[in-house]
């Protein structure tokens, strides 16, 4: 049974009275434990599709079911709650809070849970250990390298043990060595911790790490 089911998804934006179609009639399934690579040229709709699956955007048409929940029917408040529980985000530019330490950044999603302070600390320390930054707990983002920042962002993404990890160009802002480390880390999260990962990339080397690759072109799956 699939963990994520995308059925007949279309997404359009309106500029004045002109409809701009970003995604057209897309359907596919992702099984639990999959590592899916979404590839395509700029403007093909990769990030839009990822945003729809992650519940930060709504489809114009069609439905998306994640772990038996049709998220296209959830209202904004329900979606926020759902995201906090089921989605782990990894962004191209890490999107860490510059004024918070690595620990505080990773702890952020847990503030939405009912965990005690002690439990939160244990979870954060464990997540930072997994990404190999157990010794950088009190460092601020500006005191870390790009690769380390992305690892903190990955720790923040996995700290709640989400159903799906979504990564939007996770190596897009990194040098070759750091990119390789991040890809190995994602691979490890998939194989060792059985995390379902959807990764948007236009880097073929990054895509090689995925179990499956889907290509998007002009809003259509090929």
């Amino acid at each position: 049974m699939s963990l994520v089911s995308v059925q007949n998804i279309s997404k359009s934006y309106w500029r004045d009275s002109q409809e701009i179609r970003v995604l057209t009639n897309i359907s596919f399934d992702i099984a639990e434990g999959d590592f899916l690579g979404l590839m395509g040229p700029s403007g093909s709709g990769k990030t839009t599709l990822l945003n729809l699956i992650a519940g930060i955007d709504k489809p114009t048409k069609g439905s998306i079911t994640v772990s038996s929940t049709d998220i296209s029917k959830l209202n904004e408040s329900e979606l926020a709650k759902w995201r906090a529980r089921h989605i782990g985000f990894v962004f191209q530019f890490y999107n860490l809070m510059p004024v918070l330490t690595a620990f505080e950044n990773v702890e952020l999603p847990l503030l939405l849970s009912k965990l005690s302070k002690k439990e939160r600390r244990e979870h954060v320390e464990f997540a930072l250990q997994i990404v190999g930054l157990g010794d950088r707990v009190h460092h601020y983002p500006k005191q870390l390298s790009g690769g380390q920042e992305q690892r903190v962002a990955i720790a923040r993404a996995i700290v709640t043990d989400p159903t799906v990890l979504v990564a939007d160009e996770p190596t897009g802002d990194l040098d070759k060595v750091s990119a390789e480390e991040i890809l190995k880390l994602l691979e490890r999260l998939n194989t060792e911790f059985k995390k379902t990962i959807i990764m948007v990339t236009h880097d073929p080397r990054a895509a090689e790490r995925a179990h499956k690759i889907r290509h998007l072109d002009k809003g259509e799956l090929s």
């Binding site: 926020a80 989605i87 999107n95 952020l108 939405l112």
Partner: peptide
Amino acid sequence: TVEIGTLRSLGFRR
């Protein structure tokens, strides 16, 4: 703005 977008995507509400 990006921080706000990030916080919202993490599940923080309006």
